[in-house]
Every structure is written in C-alpha cells, then in structure tokens.
C-alpha cells in the first residue's frame, strides 16, 4: 500500500455524525425544545419539552403534521422544536402517567411566556379530572376573578399544552360544550373517551339544568362531579341555578364547589 492510498483510506474513515447529535445538543443547551410523538387517549400526540418541563402538545394526525407543528412552535415560542428519540428520564415516567391517567400529576410543565392570569387559569383547569367538566365561570370564580369569564375563555384558547392541560374539560357557562382549538368534534371525542357523554351534556344544557343534587344528602353538584354521578336517578334533583338549589335547602358540594347561592 502506498503512502498516498493509506492516507486516502484514513480520510475515508471520516463519516457523518448521526443525525441525532444536533437536535440533542440544541435541546440540552436550551436553544431548541425536543419533541416526541406518543399515543394519547384518542390518536397520537406531539409533546415538546425542555429542561424545565413539557412546553407544548398537539394532536399528531393528517391535519396536524410535523412540519406544521414545528412552524407553529417556532412562531409561538421563538425557538425551534426538533424531533428527538427519547424523553429525558426525569420527564419520561410522569409523562407516561399523565398520558395514561389524563392527570398532569408530577409532570413538570414550562409555562414561561404565560402571564400570571393565564397561568392561574391553566393550573386550575389542570385540577379538573378526566370524566368531569366545569364551566368557564367556575374557573373565574376559583381563581378569584369571578367577572373575568371571557378572559378565562381566551386564556384557555391559548393553552400551549392542550390535552395534557385539559382545557377540553372546560365548557360554556350555560353548560354547552362550546368551542375548542382543535375543533368541537375533537373536544367531544376527548370528553367521550374520558367517560363524559357529550349528548347528555348538551341535553342538560338545553333543558337549562346547571346543577344536580341528591334528595338524601341535600348537596348540589356540577352534573359530572363524581359525587353527582353516584346519585341514583330516583334521588336525583335538577336545578337551573344555585339560587334554586339554595331555596330548596341544598348546599354546594365541597368536592366540585359549584357556585354558592349568595354569589
């Protein structure tokens, strides 16, 4: 072998770095968020994250492709999101649990870029468990801004981590299911996958029913409160308002905290 060809052969050992290097470095330096695709309750989800926690979530289907996700992410956060193969260990377990249970649990979330009001709204929405829904007015009252119902709707509409932060569990104050960033159809599908019957919700709303009570305990609840769902049909009483419930001698449920009559 001549000297020239040995050196050529050595130079031929030069090889491209694996395509995973650049994304991993950008994620570890905080210059980009990584994202993975995971099965959700209905369909697959893209979940983005950084050192602080989960930063974004979107359905992953024909209507929401990877390129669109990356473009929206860049527009919204001003930094890129790059596909990575794995979620860091610290997030992996809590993310799997959040996806499986529909509760955010111990999953760290990154809500930088949201103001105090929006953060309070999102954190409150995250308290609503799967299979339950609450009206916008409930969130407004719970965060101490009872008149900010419309602003609550706006804050939820700009939820950067939908599905994981379950803004789909928040409905109109009149009880109707209402709008959703990914369309009303998806909101209904998500709710029904979680055990809420959207038709029943709409039916109650159209009858003007806001609360249901038990004539044995004399407690009234949101219709999807776990307490309310345990009440048998024979003992179930429907109320159109808190005042009506109070007039009948009912008190608000301590679990789902419906509007008290005085308010």
């Amino acid at each position: 072998m001549s000297s020239g060809s040995l050196i050529d052969d050595l130079e031929a050992l030069r090889t491209a770095a694996p395509p995973t290097v650049l994304p991993a470095v950008l994620v570890r330096t905080g210059l980009a968020d990584g994202y993975v695709t995971r099965p959700g309750l209905i369909g697959r989800l893209r979940v983005a994250f950084n050192e602080r926690g989960v930063s974004a979530c979107e359905p992953a289907d024909e209507a929401y492709d990877a390129a669109g996700f990356e473009r929206r992410f860049l527009e919204h956060f001003g930094r890129p999101a790059v596909p990575v193969s794995d979620v860091p260990g610290r997030l992996a377990g809590p993310l799997d649990r959040a996806l499986a249970t529909g509760r955010i649990g111990q999953l760290p979330i990154d809500l930088r870029g949201t103001g105090d009001f929006q953060r309070a709204v999102l954190e409150k929405a995250a308290e609503i468990g799967p299979g339950e829904i609450r009206p916008y007015s409930w969130i407004a009252r719970e965060i101490g801004k009872p008149r900010a119902v419309r602003a609550v709707g706006t804050a939820l509409g700009r939820n950067p981590i939908p599905i994981l932060i379950p803004c789909h569990r928040v409905v109109r104050t009149d009880g109707r299911i209402g709008n959703y960033g990914f369309g009303t159809a998806m909101k209904r599908s998500l709710l029904s996958a979680e055990g809420v019957d959207p038709d029943e919700v709409e039916a109650l709303a159209s009858r003007g029913v806001r609360y249901v009570g038990s004539d044995t305990t004399h407690v009234y609840c949101h219709p999807t409160c776990r307490g309310a769902r345990r009440v048998t049909a024979a003992h179930r009483v429907a109320f159109r308002s808190a005042r009506e419930a109070a007039a009948a001698g009912y008190r608000p449920c301590r679990q789902c905290r419906p509007e008290p009559a005085a308010a």
Binding site: L13, T15, A17, P18, T20, V21, V25, R28, T29
Partner: peptide, 28 residues
C-alpha cells in the same frame, strides 16, 4: 464540526455509542 468530532471520537474510542455521547457532550 460535528462530522470531524464524531469521526475522530469514533476512531479513538472505537465505539459508536461513546463517540455519539462524546460528540454531544463536547458541543454542550
């Protein structure tokens, strides 16, 4: 620089997994 770092680390460590880790860590 990632290709030359990876290629060099691969021939120094003789392990693709180590070379990839080292390349990542170098830039971080």
């Amino acid at each position: 620089l990632q290709d030359q770092v990876f290629s060099g680390a691969l021939r120094i460590t003789a392990s693709r997994a180590d070379a990839e880790d080292i390349t990542q860590e170098t830039f971080v």
